[in-house]
Design a protein around this nucleic acid. Structure first.
Length: 421
RNA sequence: GGAGAGGUGGCCGAGUCGGUCGAAGGCAGCCGCCUGCUAAGCGGUUGUGGGGGUAACACCCCACCCAGGGUUCGAAUCCCUGCCUCUCCGCCA
C-alpha cells in the first residue's frame, strides 16, 4: 500500500508508476475522498475539543451543585453532530483504504521499463547447459520410468495439477527440503515452521488480497486461506509490531507447502511437476532498515543462487521489467534454471524487495536506537528454492543415457544413494 | 463439544457509585546527582497514530485502556457483538 499523503501530494508520480506497469487508474475519486476526509478531521477535532471542555465544565458545576441543564442541552447538539461526522469519517477512511489497497507498488528506479515478460532483462548466467549425446527426456517421463511419480493416481486422489511422489521421488523432495533449510540456517536465517492456513488480515498484509482474491484456496468456515507461499505467514510474524533497530536485519527461512488455484493458466504446463496446485517451497524472508534493503535484495538473491550452484544446476538471473513486476514488489529478480527436457530456462525462484509496501499494510515498524518515533520497515523475500521445480531440474539435468538419475554430490548425504535407477 | 475466568502503557499491576485517567504504584529503560569500584540511594524522564504549527525544533489539538458498535452532556469504567487467552470436564493426532 502506498502512503495516502504521498499519493495526495504526488499524483503525477503515481500515475507515471502505474503507466510503467501498463496500468491506468483514475485518481480523482481518491483525491475527492481525501479532501473530504481531511476537512472532516479538522471539524471533528474542533468539536471534540469543545465537547471535552464543556463536559469538564459540567462536571465542575455539578460538583458545586449548580445548574448545568443549559450546557447539557447545548452539548446534545454538538454530540449529535460529532456522531454524524464520525460516520462520514468512517466511510471516508474505508473508501480511501479500499482505493489504496488496489494500487500497486512504485517500481524502483533501477527496474527496466517494459510492457511484459518479453522485456525482462537478463543480468547474468551461471553454468553451461549440458550437451547430451542422446535426446534428453522430460521429467515426467523419467519420473514414470522410475516409478517415482504417479500423476494418474494423484488425479484420482485429488484432481488435475496434483502429484503423488513415491520412493526416491518422495525422498528427493525431503532431501531437498532439508538441504535447503540447512544451508539457509548456516547463513544465519532462523528456521520457522508457520501455519499454512492464515486469516484474511495476513493475506491482506502481504498484498495477496483484495486484488487477487480468486487465485487462492479458501476454506469457508472458519474463513481461512491456504498459503500460496511462506511469505504470507512469515512476513506476518511481525505484523503490528515495532522492531528495535538493533534486532535488524531479521532473517527467516521456512519450509511450507504452497497452494495456488492457477486459475487462468489453463493449458499451461499441464503435464508434470512444473505447475501444481500444491507444491513444496523453502522461503527466505527479511525485515530490514530502509537504507539496507537493496543491498539485502542482492544478498538474498545470492543466497538463493548458491543453492543452484551447489546442486550444479545452470541458471540465469533476470530482473523483471515494470510490466511483469508483481503487484507488491518494487524490484524483483527471477532465477531461472535450465531444463533440458524443455530446452529452456524456467523460473525456480523469485526474489523481491517490497520496500515499505507490505510494511504499511501490515503495520511493521522499526524504532531507531536513541530516536523518537517510528518508521516503516522494509520487507523482502525470495524462494530458496521451489522444491518441485528443483526436482524437475535435477531429473532432467542429471539424467543418463540409460535413464538413470545421478544424485548431485551436495544431496547425497541427504539421500543416501548416488543414483536413481 | 460442555462449564467457568479474563483481556489496561516494554513488563507487572491499580482503577471506587461513569466526571482532568493517557491512565496510580512497581519493574525495566534513558538523563543527571551522589558514593574508591560494585550494589544501594536521590531527582527528572520514557507510548502510538492523526490534524495543525515550525526553516527545523518547540508547541497546540484530537484519537487510542483487545476489536467493532451502542447508551450518556461525558466511558478504561455501563450494554451488545466479535476475536483472543487461561482453567476444568469430555474427545482426540
Amino acid at each position: 500500500m502506498l502512503d495516502a499523503r504521498f499519493v495526495r501530494e504526488n499524483p503525477e508520480k503515481v500515475k507515471a508508476a502505474l503507466q510503467k506497469r501498463n496500468m491506468e487508474m483514475d485518481l480523482a475519486p481518491f483525491m475527492a475522498v481525501e479532501e473530504g476526509r481531511l476537512s472532516n478531521i479538522r471539524q471533528l477535532d474542533e468539536l471534540r475539543e469543545q465537547r471535552n471542555k464543556v463536559s469538564e465544565e459540567i462536571s465542575r458545576l455539578k460538583k458545586q451543585r449548580q445548574d448545568a441543564a443549559g450546557l447539557i442541552e447545548e452539548m446534545k447538539g454538538v454530540s449529535a453532530r460529532i456522531k454524524e461526522l464520525e460516520e462520514e469519517q468512517r466511510e471516508a477512511e474505508r473508501k480511501a483504504r479500499e482505493f489504496l489497497l488496489a494500487v500497486p507498488n512504485v517500481p524502483h528506479a533501477s527496474v527496466p521499463v517494459g510492457k511484459d515478460e518479453t522485456e525482462n532483462v537478463e543480468i547474468r548466467r551461471w553454468g553451461e547447459p549440458r550437451q547430451f549425446d542422446f535426446a534428453p527426456l522430460n521429467h515426467w517421463d523419467l519420473g514414470e520410468m522410475h516409478g517415482i511419480m504417479d500423476f494418474e493416481r494423484a488425479s484420482k486422489i485429488a484432481g488435475a495439477r496434483f502429484s503423488l511422489m513415491k520412493g526416491a521421488g518422495a525422498g528427493l523432495e525431503r532431501a531437498l527440503m532439508n538441504f535447503m533449510l540447512d544451508l539457509n540456517t548456516s547463513k544465519g536465517y532462523t528456521e520457522v515452521f508457520p501455519p499454512i492456513l492464515v486469516n484474511r488480515d495476513s493475506m491482506t498484509g502481504t498484498g495477496q488480497i483484495p486484488k487477487f482474491e480468486g487465485e487462492y484456496f479458501r476454506i469457508a468456515d472458519p474463513e481461512l486461506y491456504l498459503i500460496p507461499t511462506a511469505e504470507v505467514p512469515v512476513t506476518n510474524i511481525h505484523r503490528q509490531e515495532i522492531l528495535e533497530e538493533e534486532r535488524l536485519p531479521i532473517r527467516y527461512t521456512a519450509y511450507t507447502p504452497c497452494f495456488r488455484r492457477e486459475a487462468g493458466s489453463y493449458g499451461k504446463d499441464t503435464r508434470g511437476l512444473i505447475r501444481q496446485h500444491q507444491f513444496n517451497k523453502v522461503e527466505l524472508v527479511k525485515f530490514v532498515r530502509p537504507e539496507d534493503s537493496y543491498d539485502e535484495l542482492e544478498k538474498l538473491t545470492g543466497d538463493a543462487e548458491d543453492i543452484l550452484r551447489r546442486l550444479g544446476l545452470p541458471y540465469r538471473v533476470i530482473v523483471l521489467c515494470t510490466g511483469d513486476l508483481g503487484f507488491s514488489s518494487a524490484k524483483t529478480y527471477d532465477l531461472e534454471v535450465w531444463l533440458p527436457g524443455q530446452g529452456r530456462y524456467r523460473e525456480i525462484s523469485s526474489c523481491s524487495n517490497f520496500e515499505d509496501f507490505q510494511a504499511r499494510r501490515a503495520d511493521i515498524r522499526i524504532r531507531r536506537t536513541g530516536k523518537k518515533g517510528t518508521e516503516l520497515a522494509h520487507t523482502l523475500n525470495g524462494s530458496a528454492l521451489a522444491i518441485g521445480r528443483t526436482v524437475v531440474a535435477i531429473l532432467e539435468n542429471y539424467q543418463q543415457k540409460d535413464g538413470g538419475i545421478v544424485i548431485p554430490d551436495a544431496l547425497r548425504p541427504y539421500m543416501g544413494i548416488e543414483k536413481i535407477g
